[in-house]
Amino acid sequence: MSNLEQLESGGHTHAHAFDSKKVKREIWRITLYLSILTVVELILGFIMMPWPEDSLKRHLVKGLVMALMLWKAFYIIGYFMHLRHEVRNMIMVISIPSILFVWFIAAFLGDGQSYKDLRARMDPYHVEHAQLPMEFPAEEGHEGHETPEVHKMEAPAATPAPAAAGTDTSKKAE
């Protein structure tokens, strides 16, 4: 049964698990880091707001924000979810499968980009169409939508209103 006792302490030596002050200090330290990182992200967000879309510096800042996001994820997983204090095997078993995301993301986004490029080459009308300014109030397919479903809106997560945009879609949704 010594095994069970060991498990109860969450797999740690008692000295570590019950050094309450030290653990709490670590928790607040990580909270501080997470807050600082979030504030930095927000500052970057405000800085890049006026920059034109598709400019290089904006892309660079976006990349930086992504890096900060991963850094925050590291703190949450490592300290709040306690993975850093697990045994090495456990860390490996959880983190190695996550590497699959690299190719998952690269291939998907790469193919998305390629879809856009190929379509722009094969279907110039599509590009032309994309240059048209948006009409306000939205008329094609968006109208007839706001009024009838408002009352259903009260509980959005439970029963989303059948967003029947125009006759064609409602027919489709049948």
């Binding site: 397919g141 059948p162 967003a163 064609d168 879609t169 489709k172 949704a173």
Partner: peptide, 28 residues
């Protein structure tokens, strides 16, 4: 299928239904 989105539907034309109002989706 049920909530009028077009994640996988592009602006295609279907016989008997007509042109779909969907845009931007991608069956791939």
């Amino acid at each position: 299928r049920h909530f009028g989105t077009s994640f996988y539907l592009s602006d295609i034309y279907i016989q008997g239904v007509g042109a779909l109002p969907h845009e931007g989706g991608n069956a791939i």
